[in-house]
Design a protein around this nucleic acid. Structure first.
Lengths: 333, 333
DNA sequence: GCCCATTTTTAACGCGCGCAAAAAATACAT
DNA sequence: ATGTATTTTTTGCGCGCGTTAAAAATGGGC
């Protein structure tokens, strides 16, 4: 930087100021530095910069499972917004494992990030570790809420999701039963089950919850195996199945296919299947999956805005924001 | 570190040595440090460490599109292997955009990584930028080869993939036509098309390539729209379609479904569809997709081993390693 | 108990930059 | 032209650690 300052004819502290915020120097100076930059290709050393700055420009983005396109998509959106705001996002995935998640937070802490956007694993998370992390690092929790940790929570309105799609299913055919994992990985599942029960009761129908076995994050396979069992034992007392999430629904579709059941809204169909999440793949199942989609844009915008407000010092009281979803009516239900 | 060294009763340079390689200090000293570590929770400052070390312990992992579960899965595997070898992997996605890829490499360069595992976008990549990057940073190219850049290339044997699955299709029914994008995103597609043509000729059949329009990385939609057009115009002169990749096949399956065509091997089916890649989702399509799978384990192991050998100084001549795939016979063909 | 090879300690420099205080220069309004 | 507010320059410290050279301590073999 010393040498670069010399060739640009500007003092080093001013050049330093420029790199921290180009608009903080006079326009003329700025132009001269930018001109020199075009000729000399100098860039400040990240490590030296971060060692001295009290606040790094790094933002950690943590998701439970990057192999799931839902999380990949939300992570992508968050990443773009961070870059746009002048931060350097870094992506992390717990790969579905609580021990990975713990390690990851430990490494992340060492990066001294300005803030973290964290979607916790949920039930299996080490809550004590999460709590300690949130104490040390400005953290915004998204997707699934664990206690009242961090600066705030931003996610989807699971109750609205389930109520809305259950209402749609009731109005267009037999009232749905609810297909879910017995021990779901994340707390949204509980909210959805409860919302289903409430909705059905308010509509004057008997709720029926079918809970299947299965551990881990291989939801499609869990849905397929559980679907086979439920169909074999004739556990669905209605021709309409509302799944707790799209990946489970995709597995159930496969099970139906494997049993020769025709899926959809036509009179000759044996079963209607709906999901929840607006999974990127749901458009391409056969038949295309009726579901209710997260509002990726609004969720990510709210999350990032809230975090940046907090980083800039506007720390409000803990607050939970839940965004409504949009119904995607397709052929499966 | 000064303070931590003081409370452990060890000199700072020795503690520094310990953190670089715990086995480089005497067992007794090591135990004393580790005991102190259990009580005092000290960790070296990453930024200060990397500022002075000539070689960072960071490994960059770059994929063209993290939203594609194929890349997410291979990235996950690579990440685990890096951690296991004592490195700190960092994940990057070009999100399908060449300008993103360029920026990303620029930022990555600033991280001074020990090495990079790079799956380039392919056709749209700025090759000049890639070349410059590879000159500065030890880079191993995987998935799709661009010129003879970097230390080496590790990927799948596309010729073997296509030959193998084409052979299977020929032996079990009508010879396949080949369904692909006119301007495919990555060079593997060209290899697969050529291998298809060669295979068909060697089997004594007429090759037939159906190339559809479409730009970008939304392969499912491109396959669906292109599939509709091909089916409407009756472009497939056989009942068997071998797709250039699984995502295209998934789109074609959707198109077939939407046109009421029964897919599979049964006598009453109108069309057989096969893919290539062993996409994580291919098991759950309806019907499950016959495909030929990348050998994720071998590819990632070979890639990481090659990179680490080079980092440790064993730089061999540029070399291309291509791993064979495994046929997954399922119901779609 | 002595010698030698290895390891640890002591002391000190340097990495590349952020940051602060005081002095100098510049911009703008009157 | 004068005065004031803002920027820039000058000067220099310090961040937390890697690294080195020389001195001191340690360990194992005999």
């Amino acid at each position: 930087m010393e040498e670069f300052a010399a060739v640009s004819g500007i003092s080093r502290p001013t050049v330093s100021k420029f790199f921290n915020d180009p608009s903080s120097v006079r326009p003329k100076i700025r132009e001269r530095i930018e001109a020199a930059l075009r000729e000399h290709e100098y860039r400040p050393n990240i490590y030296a910069v971060n060692q001295n700055r009290k606040l790094t420009k790094t933002i950690g983005i943590v998701v439970p499972l990057l192999v799931d396109p839902y999380f990949a998509e939300i992570a992508r959106t968050l990443e773009e917004r961070c870059i746009h705001a002048g931060y350097r996002p870094t992506l992390f995935s717990a790969h579905g494992s609580a021990s990975h998640e713990e390690e990851l937070l430990d490494n992340l802490r060492a990066l001294k990030p300005a803030g973290v956007l964290l979607a916790p694993l949920g039930r299996t998370s080490n809550k004590e570790a999460l709590r300690r992390f949130c104490e040390d690092v400005p953290t915004l929790i998204f997707d699934s809420s664990v206690d009242e940790l961090g600066l705030a929570f931003v996610g989807s309105d699971n109750a609205q999701f389930t109520t809305h799609i259950a209402d749609y299913l009731c109005r267009t055919g037999e009232p749905p039963c609810f297909f879910e994992m017995k021990t779901p990985a994340n707390p949204n599942a509980h909210r959805r089950r409860q919302a289903y029960i409430n909705a059905m009761e308010s509509f004057g129908h008997d709720p029926q919850v079918v809970s299947i076995d299965g551990e881990g994050w291989g939801f499609e396979e869990i849905g397929r195996v559980g679907g086979h069992e439920a169909l074999a034992k004739d556990l669905f007392r209605t021709n309409t199945v509302l799944c707790s999430n799209d990946r489970l629904a995709i597995g159930l579709l496969t099970a139906c296919y494997e049993r020769g059941l025709k899926i959809g809204r036509d009179p000759d169909c044996a079963i209607r299947v709906a999901g929840q999440d607006g999974h990127p793949h749901s458009r391409y199942t056969c038949p295309p999956l009726t579901t209710i989609s997260h509002d990726y844009d609004t969720v990510s915008k709210t999350a990032v805005d809230t975090l940046f407000r907090a980083i800039e010092g506007n720390v409000d009281a803990w607050k939970s924001t839940r965004i409504e979803g949009k119904l995607l009516m397709r052929d499966s239900a």
